[in-house]
Design a protein around this nucleic acid. Structure first.
Lengths: 200, 200
DNA sequence: GACTTTCTGGAATGCTTGGTCTATTTAAGG
DNA sequence: CCTTAAATAGACCAAGCATTCCAGAAAGTC
């Protein structure tokens, strides 16, 4: 009956992610979105409601992509401790592209500080990452890789905090060395809590 | 000769700090500034040039105030290690006012991501805090409180990263527990590097 | 007490922006 | 082949914004 749409929602969202990640919400103008997505203005509004609706979809998608990625690594078979270290080391990649685009989620926390809808999405993402870390840490304890005396949640929260710190400071032009050291310190913290670390 | 100004620059700046900290740059409207500062529009432009000029002055002032405060604590007489722990514990206060206004400097990094002037100010502030931490850590080593084998700069950078992470995540309504745990982990990291911590 | 320089208050301006409206095209169903 | 519902293209609109302009007031100086 009706004319089918010519654009792909997923592809459009991915392009929008890139736009918002680079320029932020306010500095991403609707005409820029229209051009970059190769979509007509009206279709944009039909599909997403308004600019904020698009942004919300973008934020969720970005979070899904990024955090799913980490969680998959954390839950992959093998040593939970090694998986954890692999994920942490992954953040060091920020150093090589510094100044990086930065974490969209972290930016959302600043740009939409009093938009309860956005904050709820952000909080859910933070919670998910934190829970993933905590689960990996508990698994490491169960596997005898991590000392039973350490508190998985406390370390998970600390790691999560550090990760969002990196997603923020990586925006700074001269932060490559900072990132490397921060990641190294995170790894050292985990090592110190590992069984081989101080219970030899 | 001329009519003297009736407003106090310092007081005006302090009020502007509060405004920008709460609402961010874009959402702080010039009429709001005019009203809150109790200053007429033209005087504002005469004094600071434009909105960005005011913001830059505000950012510098905020950074001076906050970081001078930490540095003074870090350099106060007595045990460098205890001073460091005192400063770190200070961040736990964020938990009690969570969601907090958040760190103006951290917000600047997001809101003015491609304003080189703002970024330079931010970087200088990050450097200053990091240097303060590093100096305290070296002093602690010199005092025999901290193991000589740890790298002061690495820990300083990690602490700095965590602190800005806190300044960001404290915006999240449910982050009080997160903040407490992150601070506890920072303290644990320092304790682990202390001489009494593992070289008894 | 007059003069000059700055401050003050508010109106005016011009630009940028997100969002909408209308006419037109497109493709599938009967 | 005609109908129909949706997508497209681009002009259009109205609101919000930072900034400037202008006339009047105030306060030191000579």
């Amino acid at each position: 009956m009706a004319r089918p749409r010519t654009f792909d929602r997923n592809e459009a969202l991915e392009r929008a992610v890139a736009l918002f990640q680079v320029h932020g919400f306010e500095h991403t103008k609707v005409p820029d979105i229209v051009e970059s997505l190769g979509i007509c203005r009206q279709s944009l509004y039909n599909e997403f409601g308004d600019k904020r609706g698009l942004y919300l979809a973008v934020l969720e998608r970005y979070g899904q992509r990024e955090i799913d990625n980490k969680l998959a690594l954390l839950q992959s078979p093998g040593s939970p401790l090694q998986n954890l270290l692999t994920v942490i080391r992954g953040w060091a990649a920020l150093a090589s592209q510094c100044p990086a685009d930065g974490c969209l989620t972290a930016a959302a926390l600043v740009e939409h500080r009093d938009d309860a809808g956005v904050l709820a999405v952000v909080e859910a993402q933070v919670d998910r990452l934190e829970a993933g870390f905590a689960q990996a840490l508990r698994a490491a304890q169960a596997a005898g890789e991590l000392r039973a005396s350490v508190d998985p949640q406390r370390i998970a929260r600390s790691l999560t905090n550090s990760c969002y710190g990196l997603g923020l400071l990586s925006r700074l032009p001269g932060s490559a060395a900072r990132i490397g050291d921060s990641v190294a310190a995170m790894i050292a913290m985990i090592d110190a809590a590992a069984v081989s670390g101080s219970e030899r």
